[in-house]
Simulated assay, not measured.
Amino acid sequence: MKLKIDHLSRYTYQEKVSLNPHDLYLIPQQRSYIKILDSQLNISPNPLGKNERINAEGNPFYQVWFDEETSELVVKSSLELEISNYNPYDFILQKEVVFPFDFFVYPDAFEESLRLFIKTEERNEQLKPYVQGSINQSSDFISFLTLLVANIHRDWKHIIRMEEGLMTVEEMFEKKEGSCRDLSWLLIQMLRSVGLASRFVSGYAFNPELEEGHELHAWVEVFLPGAGWIGLDPSLGLFADQNYIPLACSFHPLNTLPIYGTYGGGGSSHLTSEVIIKEVKE
């Protein structure tokens, strides 16, 4: 399967501003099922310089800088990808991985490198019992993770929410709804409440049934020794397969935005964005 992805971001400013350096997380991450056939990045105004870098968590990004004032910043990323079939269940866990468990403990070799991904940032007494219910009804890790994301998909309504930021865990348990980024944050807190390292993923998710309405999507990866990072989508109740194209992964959602940057000058800015994903027929 070949996919064509066009991602347009447009920032308009109330008055002309000077743009400080910007970081653009618009490069698909290395995955065995993704081959980049073509990649075009068009930026207006034309940057003085552009370079590809890698951040502290291993995410590739473009760093761009400017030398002129502007009332608008337009970033258009165009990708053509070849996508191979990928079985997200095809892995073997290390023999040290024990199931069932009350609180998961990683082998010493992983402890330091996973510390940030285990830290629980929201505490709620409903988190661990909810996860424990899925553990009690499962026979192994695959059935547990499958049931957990299916239960979240069943118990929470997936909504489109344009407001910035994240809903709190307390709000989500109260309202029983959330956007893809909210539900991903909820799943992360659930997994961390029982000791499982997890991270937030932002990228593209291709739905062949959609003609339009594609947006950036959020999902979760959990780390299990032997398997590495395993993708989970609580919004749809699925393991992440070849239709998921990650751009950035982090212990915290704020580190996975597609564009970071500031400007000098007065007035406010306004962002509009559009993502179009189409299958290219041979």
Score class of each variant (00 low, 15 high):
residue 34 I to D: 01
residue 121 E to W: 11
residue 12 T to L: 09
residue 11 Y to P: 10
residue 103 F to M: 03
residue 97 V to K: 00
residue 15 E to M: 12
residue 64 V to K: 05
residue 65 W to C: 12
residue 20 N to G: 04
residue 22 H to Y: 08
residue 54 I to R: 08
residue 115 R to I: 04
residue 17 V to G: 10
residue 60 P to N: 02
residue 18 S to P: 07
residue 25 Y to V: 06
residue 113 S to W: 07
residue 13 Y to F: 15
residue 26 L to Q: 05
residue 69 E to M: 13
residue 118 I to P: 00
residue 66 F to K: 13
residue 15 E to Q: 15
residue 29 Q to W: 07
residue 58 G to H: 05
residue 74 V to Q: 12
residue 47 P to I: 04
residue 57 E to V: 15
residue 84 S to K: 01
residue 77 S to P: 11
residue 32 S to T: 02
residue 45 P to C: 09
residue 57 E to C: 04
residue 58 G to V: 00
residue 110 F to G: 01
residue 47 P to N: 02
residue 103 F to T: 09
residue 71 S to E: 15
residue 19 L to G: 12
residue 76 K to T: 15
residue 88 P to V: 00
residue 35 K to N: 02
residue 115 R to Y: 10
residue 115 R to M: 07
residue 69 E to P: 12
residue 95 K to M: 06
residue 56 A to K: 13
residue 77 S to K: 12
residue 75 V to N: 06
residue 97 V to Q: 05
residue 75 V to A: 05
residue 12 T to Y: 06
residue 64 V to F: 11
residue 45 P to I: 09
residue 64 V to T: 09
residue 105 V to N: 11
residue 52 E to P: 07
residue 109 A to T: 05
residue 114 L to I: 00
residue 24 L to H: 05
residue 120 T to M: 14
residue 39 S to P: 04
residue 31 R to I: 00
residue 20 N to V: 03
residue 63 Q to C: 13
residue 42 N to F: 11
residue 15 E to R: 08
residue 66 F to Q: 14
residue 93 L to P: 10
residue 110 F to W: 08
residue 82 E to H: 04
residue 42 N to Y: 03
residue 69 E to G: 15
residue 120 T to A: 11
residue 105 V to E: 14
residue 102 D to A: 08
residue 51 N to V: 15
residue 67 D to K: 14
residue 12 T to H: 06
residue 58 G to F: 05
residue 11 Y to R: 06
residue 105 V to S: 10
residue 100 P to L: 02
residue 56 A to T: 13
residue 88 P to M: 03
residue 58 G to Q: 01
residue 113 S to G: 05
residue 37 L to E: 10
residue 36 I to F: 03
residue 20 N to H: 13
residue 33 Y to R: 01
residue 15 E to S: 14
residue 83 I to W: 03
residue 91 F to M: 03
residue 61 F to E: 06
residue 72 E to P: 06
residue 111 E to F: 02
residue 61 F to V: 06
residue 79 L to C: 05
residue 42 N to L: 08
residue 97 V to C: 07
residue 48 L to N: 12
residue 115 R to C: 02
residue 77 S to W: 04
residue 51 N to W: 12
residue 34 I to N: 00
residue 20 N to C: 04
residue 86 Y to Q: 01
residue 115 R to S: 09
residue 16 K to S: 14
residue 30 Q to A: 12
residue 98 V to F: 10
residue 92 I to C: 10
residue 96 E to Y: 05
residue 109 A to E: 13
residue 35 K to F: 00
residue 66 F to T: 08
residue 36 I to M: 07
residue 69 E to N: 13
residue 37 L to K: 02
residue 37 L to W: 01
residue 105 V to Q: 14
residue 52 E to S: 12
